[in-house]
Computed example of a mutant assay.
Amino acid sequence: MRAPFRFGIDLGGTKTEIIALEGADERLRERLPTPQGDYQATLETIACLVRDAEQQLGGTGSVGVGIPGTRSPDHGRIKNANSTCLIGEDLQGDLENLLQRPVRLANDADCFTLSEASDGAAAGASNVFGVILGTGVGGGIVINGQLLSGPNAVAGEWGHNPLPWRTAADGPPRRCYCGLDDCIETFLSGPGWAARSNLGVNATHLAEAASRDEPSASQAMQRYCEQLARSLASVINLLDPQVIVLGGGLSNMPQLYQQVPPLLVRHVFSDRVNTRLVQARHGDSSGVRGAAWLWPEHTQG
């Protein structure tokens, strides 16, 4: 009988994707639309993807799922999910009953970080901080190949810390959806950056204008890089990671890798900064690959 595969599921807002890894090699990838607002249909979609993958590959596998939220360590149910039909549900238990095997869950930013630390841009590093810069700002921490988790299941949630070393040049306060003012997410997410730039365009158009050296957009880019440098410096002062990996739509802006590293030293408590700032190797695939990596190879069989 074939050695078992590792199945990773990326449960997104619009699509649910499965990947099958054999070692570090991709053997299969499929996706289905995510049912909107229907928890039972979401469970069936995940189960259908796993069963179809096993039929195509002729072997069974472990299952890891990346979710847009967190499994509470207090009651085991989902919290902080922007797919609201998941909130309060025992997603892990329900999937284990459907699939008749253990299932591991992790936040999608954690899966991203685990992927890049396992066989991505930070492979071989013992201390990795993964960053999502997109519609929101998320993060994950991997130490010696293991996701860092704590009693509140919020490790890496740097986007809901306040912007450090704030000045008047950062603009007026803005309320975050979490109820607090001036969270990092209100500056560094795509919608946050666009709103604070006051140019009437979204983040994609803002980045394109900056790449053409349009003055107002270039100024917005410089301010973004300076705010990102301050925010990452506070992480470096706390975790001292070997590598910081950037993912999400805004991570594709080349200015980040040119402008941010020289700005870090002003705020990092060191005479030089040896932390590497890199772009994700697996891009949009990091989340689903990381879900598969929730089961290391040596735990299978």
Rank of each mutant, 00 (worst) to 15 (best):
R51H: 12
E44R: 08
C48Y: 15
Y39E: 11
G37S: 09
R27E: 11
G64C: 10
G66M: 00
I46L: 04
E54S: 12
Q56W: 13
S72D: 12
D52S: 13
Q55Y: 10
D25P: 01
T45V: 08
G69P: 04
K79R: 13
P68E: 05
I78S: 14
L32M: 05
R51E: 09
Y39T: 14
V65G: 05
T60M: 10
L57C: 11
T70P: 00
T84D: 09
D94A: 08
Q40T: 09
S83C: 04
G37F: 10
A47T: 09
P102E: 15
G23E: 10
P33H: 14
E26P: 01
L57I: 11
L86E: 05
H75Q: 04
L49Q: 00
Q56R: 15
G64N: 08
P35I: 03
N80P: 00
I78E: 08
N80K: 01
I67A: 00
L57R: 11
V103D: 00
R71Y: 03
A81N: 07
C85E: 09
K79C: 07
T84M: 11
Q92E: 12
T42A: 01
I67P: 00
N82G: 12
V50M: 10
T45I: 06
K79S: 05
I78C: 10
L49A: 00
E89P: 02
T45W: 05
I78N: 12
G23K: 08
S83R: 01
R71M: 07
V65F: 03
L98M: 14
E30R: 06
Q55M: 15
V103C: 07
T34D: 01
L43A: 11
G61I: 13
R31F: 00
T42L: 01
R71D: 09
G23N: 08
G93Y: 04
S83M: 05
E30F: 07
G69I: 04
I87W: 06
L95C: 09
T84K: 11
E30K: 13
Q55H: 13
G64Q: 07
H75C: 03
L99W: 07
Y39S: 08
I67H: 01
E30Q: 12
A41T: 06
G76L: 04
C48S: 13
R27Y: 09
V103W: 12
L43Q: 07
G64M: 06
G76H: 02
P33Q: 07
E44Y: 05
T70W: 03
S72T: 03
I46H: 12
P35T: 09
L91E: 09
P102S: 15
L28E: 00
Q40Y: 11
L43C: 12
T60S: 12
R77F: 04
S72I: 03
G88L: 06
P33V: 10
L57N: 12
Q55C: 15
V65P: 07
